[in-house]
Design a protein around this nucleic acid. Structure first.
Length: 182
DNA sequence: CCCTGATTCGC
DNA sequence: GCGAATCAGG
């Protein structure tokens, strides 16, 4: 993985939106290990991990888990942005970012039925319109002409028509495109 | 078994 | 720095 600024920005954005590492990996065409590894290196806020390694526990036996039962209840609830902000973007598994999917046609072609793995979340609010100040991402999703067709609802990077994640795949690094262009 | 994320460690 | 392997919990 070539961790360009864009890629890192995309990672940060997706991470902040509460996507799973595997999901981020899928979206960016990399493994979840790469995602979690990089996230870790970037010191991105760890999200509720299902596990608790012995290492941390061993470092002090049981530090204070039992310290103040009352306090732990409320304060031990960081659970920041666990909300899957992005309303299920069935953007399929885009090919490992190689070519900037320019046309909606090609995108449609590369759009296999992607049943959402996650159960519908009651808290997930599909916002029909962005009223936010920022421009929304122009990345087309679905087949044009169908009811499903829409654009990515994420907020575009300022100065770019795409959100971080789509920008990361939309813009192939300019360098050395000459050889593949031939 | 599927999923999850964190850490480890060879590269 | 990178990420597969591994670990560990749900």
């Amino acid at each position: 993985m070539d961790w360009t600024a864009e890629a890192i920005e995309a990672l940060r954005a997706l991470w902040a939106e509460g996507h799973s590492t595997a999901e981020i990996g899928r979206r960016m065409g990399i493994s979840k290990n790469a995602v979690v590894g990089k996230a870790h290196r970037l010191n991105l806020p760890a999200r509720p991990s299902p596990i608790r390694r012995e290492a941390e526990a061993a470092s002090g036996a049981r530090p204070a888990v039992t310290a103040s039962p009352a306090a732990t209840a409320k304060e031990a609830l960081p659970v920041p942005a666990a909300r899957p902000a992005a309303p299920v973007m069935p953007v399929a598994t885009l090919a490992p970012a190689s070519k900037p999917i320019a046309s909606a046609a090609s995108l449609a072609a590369a759009r296999p039925p992607t049943p959402p793995r996650r159960a519908p979340q009651p808290t997930a609010v599909v916002r029909p319109f962005q009223r936010m100040g920022g421009r929304s991402c122009c990345w087309p999703i679905g087949e044009p002409g169908t009811p499903e067709f829409r654009f990515c609802t994420a907020e575009a990077i300022s100065g770019k028509p795409y959100c971080p994640e789509h920008a990361s795949i939309a813009y192939v690094k300019a360098r050395d495109r000459r050889d593949d262009a031939a």
